[in-house]
Design a protein around this nucleic acid. Structure first.
Length: 451
RNA sequence: GGCGGCGUGGCCGAGUGGUCCAGGCAAGGGCCUGCAAAGCCCUCUACAGCGGUUCGAUUCCGCUCGCCGCCUCCA
């Protein structure tokens, strides 16, 4: 079974599914108040790879990832555009899923929306109030962090030290008793979207939705809660605190992926404003290149998405593409067992995907050096890349348009009669159409280079 | 200030107390080719610095320097 760093303990530990053979997973999804950025690309790719691998390993995975469709930033965006929040959120959500398709990231099994769970959130807040874990302040209802034993587990600090480092409270949260307390229910200002509650019309705070949605769809003591490292504290801590205060058993294992950083090594961050649009990047690089880049770095390390790193990742994809093209007509074979074994042990070791790539490229080299083993090795590469990692490779012959086929025919004819001037001209035309041209014993072949 | 992490060859990026070697990208040379492309071969070979432990440290320990993350919004 796969061992994964557990943020709650600081140790790599084997996953132990609550229900044998089934894995229940919650991943914190996007707030749809803008275009997805590179950080969204990483978090979704990392855990998409994880999810596929778990399924490939024979587990059934119940994968839940939420969409936060009501939140301050959405209200601001809607006000700026003079449109309803639901419309703005809907538009960005559409862009979100389109971008996920571009990345080759599978849809979650469930994608609960915050606005569909307001009633459950109100119920939870009532329970917290009744239990003395929450209080009413000026602008709404707040959670009392001091009321929970062991608050600070995911930050690996205790309440007192966290409080020492906390920054000055925001003015609109003046009703809080402690800077670490957080809002459960925000009373609506005039014109803001609002839902009814015993504490006045308003909207839920961000941290509550994940509690009711994860417990609602995955049940008590679900297996794994995932997200970007920046969510570990305070977001996940605050989820955990609510669940504990409500006497519910929450996630049993927490895992967090590292941040995307800029060229200088600084984290991409909304407040800093150094975030890069993901759809914009996907115009320049296909999703497979980004997936290769993610695979080439450990999921917990900071990852820079630079031109050089992207070009390098593209080179890897191209090398795999070439290997697949040259081996796809080999007779079918069982995947090479030792290659698969190495793959499993790399993945099971806290998702060491860089080592996975080393193994895959090792198989590629071996297949070229030892033709007798090539069918089994090629089958292993296919199994690993396609089935387990979601890295689509050209296992099927590409269809070429008539114009390209005509160019290929012209080059073949010219070469056959020794007219290299014409042959070169035909090649240039094909290159201009975006193809790499190769001469083979079977004649001219063309292929597209990864974008 | 508290807590956590990082510093590997031109670049990205694993890993390890002791032979050799990560892997990819890039660069240079060669083979192959009508010329190419792809592929193959070769070259460039590192572990921030200083101490310590050890027969032996890039790997363990300490210190120094540098960088980053969290304690604000955030994936």
């Amino acid at each position: 079974m796969l061992a994964l760093m557990n943020t709650a303990t600081g140790e790599v530990a084997e996953l132990e599914p609550r229900d044998p053979g089934h894995l229940s997973v919650y991943l914190c999804g996007p707030t749809v108040s803008g275009a997805p950025h590179l950080g969204h690309g990483r978090v979704t790719l990392v855990w998409d790879i994880f999810r596929r691998y778990m399924r490939w390993s024979g587990l059934s995975v119940r994968f839940v990832s939420n969409v936060t469709d009501i939140e301050d930033k959405i209200i601001v965006a809607a006000a700026e555009e003079g449109r309803p929040t639901a419309e703005v959120a809907g538009r960005y959500e559409k862009l979100w899923w389109k971008t996920m398709d571009g990345l080759g990231v599978e849809r979650p099994d469930f994608d609960p929306h915050a606005t569909a769970y307001v009633g459950e959130m109100v119920d939870l807040i009532a329970v917290l109030l009744a239990g003395g874990h929450a209080y009413e302040g000026g602008d709404g209802v707040y959670f009392s962090t001091a009321s929970v034993e062991g608050y600070g587990l995911l930050a690996r600090q205790d309440l007192a030290t966290l409080r020492t480092g906390a920054r000055v409270e925001a003015a609109d949260e003046a009703g809080k008793r402690s800077p670490l307390d957080f809002v459960l229910w925000k009373r609506a200002k005039p014109g803001e979207p609002a839902w009814p509650s015993p504490w006045g019309d308003g909207r839920p705070g961000w941290h509550t939705e994940c509690v009711v949605m994860s417990l609602g769809l995955l049940g008590e003591g679900f297996d794994l809660h995932l997200g970007g490292l920046d969510l570990a504290f305070p977001h996940h801590e605050n989820e955990r605190a609510q669940a504990l205060a409500a006497d519910r058993r929450f996630a049993r294992h927490w895992a967090h992926n590292g941040m995307v950083v800029d060229e200088r090594g600084d984290k991409m961050s909304k407040s800093v404003g150094n975030i890069t649009s993901l759809p914009g990047l996907l115009d320049r690089y296909e999703g497979r290149v980004l997936r290769a880049l993610v695979l080439n770095s450990h999921y917990r390390s900071p990852m820079a998405v630079t031109e050089g790193a992207l070009e390098s990742a593209k080179g890897m994809v191209e090398r795999l593409d070439n290997f697949v093209r040259e081996t796809r007509d080999l007779p079918p074979a069982e995947p090479d067992p030792s290659t698969l074994a190495r793959f499993r042990s790399s993945m099971d070791n806290d998702l060491n995907t860089t080592d996975v790539l080393a193994g895959v490229f090792g198989a590629v080299s071996d297949a070229r050096a030892e033709p007798a083993r090539a069918p089994a090795l090629a089958a292993a590469v296919k199994e690993i890349c396609q089935s387990a990692l979601g890295l689509a490779l050209p296992f099927e012959e590409e269809r070429l348009n008539p114009e390209v086929l005509e160019g290929v025919r012209l080059r073949d004819e010219a070469r056959a009669r020794g007219d290299y001037k014409e042959a070169d001209a035909a090649r240039e035309r094909l290159v201009a159409m975006g193809y790499v041209v190769e001469d083979t014993p079977a004649g001219t072949r063309v292929r597209r280079r990864p974008r």
